[in-house]
Computed example of a mutant assay.
Amino acid sequence: MSLHYQDNILNVHSVESFGTHDGPGIRMVVFLQGCKLKCQYCHNPDTIDTHGGEEYHIEDLVQMALKVKPYFGKKGGVTVSGGEPLLQSKALIPFFKRLKEEGIHTNIDTNGRILNHFTEELLDSYADLVMLDIKHMTEEGFETLTGAKNKETTFNFAKHREASGKPMWLRYVLIPGITNKPELLQALGEYFQNYETIEKIELQPYHKLGIHKWEALGWEYPLMDARENTEEEINDAVQVLQNYFKEVKVN
């Protein structure tokens, strides 16, 4: 099954009813199928292929959200993740529109690589929150880590969100010697220090929990030699970033 762009259909990898690390409060998380990046540390590599997934009608997903809405409380809601959800921006517009009609908070977890008129309408009119993954602060590092060129695309996305005046969180994976370097953390902080829409940055310490998924796909895991951060390294990273952001959270 190939990736669909029908108005009322989303191509879904999986749905999690009670997510607690995907935005504020308790959330229903819809993982969409398909991504144009192949990040070396990806812990959901089975979501990368744009072929696969299962077609869900938007209204069916809305009804699923309504069933768990009592658990959302004041802060929770629906997060769309992936894969890269903005590959399906056109269909996300009516989905988020319906969620808003039902008083449900909406959030997009994205790498910010897509900024077209569908994405802009989704961001400006229907996305209460955007969680933006910052992969790397240098072009060379970005290309090595993701297999794609032009890191500036993500930064242009961030500029658009900032101009809208709507809330944004940043996410950053800490990999010792690759992304967790003082000069990179400082560059990250200096780049975003004047952004007013950024409520927090979430640090994701590197782990190898997704290796078995790579192996199941018959893919070679590229970061076999990478190690996890020490507690001291994580604390040091927090110390650097606290100089620039209102809140630094370690997931």
Rank of each mutant, 00 (worst) to 15 (best):
E102R: 12
F72T: 03
I175V: 13
E140A: 13
N116P: 01
K90D: 03
T110M: 10
T153R: 15
K181V: 14
I178Q: 02
E183W: 15
Y191T: 03
M131F: 12
E139A: 14
F155D: 01
M168Q: 08
Y195P: 01
N150D: 15
L86M: 15
L170G: 01
L99W: 04
E183K: 11
I93L: 12
G73I: 03
Y195W: 02
R113F: 06
A91Y: 09
S81V: 11
F155I: 15
I178W: 00
F192M: 05
L129W: 11
I134M: 06
K97W: 01
N180M: 09
A148F: 06
D109W: 12
N194V: 00
E101I: 01
A163R: 10
L92K: 09
G147V: 05
H160I: 05
K135A: 06
T154V: 14
R171I: 13
G141M: 02
Y71W: 06
G82D: 09
E121S: 01
E140R: 02
H117P: 12
K135G: 08
G103H: 10
E162N: 13
P176S: 04
I108T: 09
A163L: 11
R98E: 10
N116A: 03
K135T: 05
F155L: 15
G165R: 14
E152F: 13
T144H: 12
T110H: 10
T110E: 13
L115Y: 04
P167D: 08
T146Y: 02
A158V: 06
F155V: 14
K181M: 14
G165D: 03
I93A: 10
E140M: 03
T154R: 07
I93Y: 08
Y191I: 01
K159Y: 06
G112D: 10
N180E: 05
E139K: 08
L115M: 07
A158C: 11
D133V: 07
T153W: 01
P85V: 10
H136A: 11
L145S: 13
E101P: 02
A91H: 06
E143G: 05
Y71I: 01
K90H: 14
H117N: 15
Y195F: 14
T110L: 11
N194T: 02
A163H: 06
